[in-house]
Every structure is written in structure tokens, then in C-alpha cells.
Amino acid sequence: MTLNQLKLENEGKILNIGCSENIKRRLLDLGLVKNTNIIPVLISPSGDPKAFEVRGTLIAIREEDTKKIEIKI
């Protein structure tokens, strides 16, 4: 499944990041690599973007990008 399908407060594990090169780079910098745990915790008032808890930090990512991040539960 992909990250955008993960329900709030549920934990997933990152399998693959298929975003465009510069966003992928940025996500890697922020600590999103294979096998990293990720939990969606906030939704912006208009539904997009969402914020995820990763390695003790909170990171906002747009839906168009979370669609391209594969995870497993």
C-alpha cells in the first residue's frame, strides 16, 4: 500500500520512495529511508498536506508525494 492510504495514528514501515528526484532527496535528508517507521498524525484543515511522525520529528508532505511512497504495516 502507499503512505496516503495509511490511517491516522497507524504505524507503517517505508519500503520505497518513488517521488521525483529532488523531493526524494529531501525526504532522505529528513530521515525517510527504507525500514523507517512512519505515523500520520495531523491533517491540514483542507485535507492536504498531512504531517507524519518520523524519527521523533514532524514532517509535512503533500498527498501527491505520499501516493508515491510505498509502505507496509
Partner: peptide, 12 residues
């Protein structure tokens, strides 16, 4: 040009 992007840390 490049599509817009938004990856932002929400600091404590």
C-alpha cells in the same frame, strides 16, 4: 518550470 514542492518540518 519545475512543479511546486512542499516538504516541511514542523519543529517542536
Amino acid at each position: 518550470g519545475m512543479p511546486s514542492s512542499f516538504v516541511l518540518e514542523l519543529p517542536p
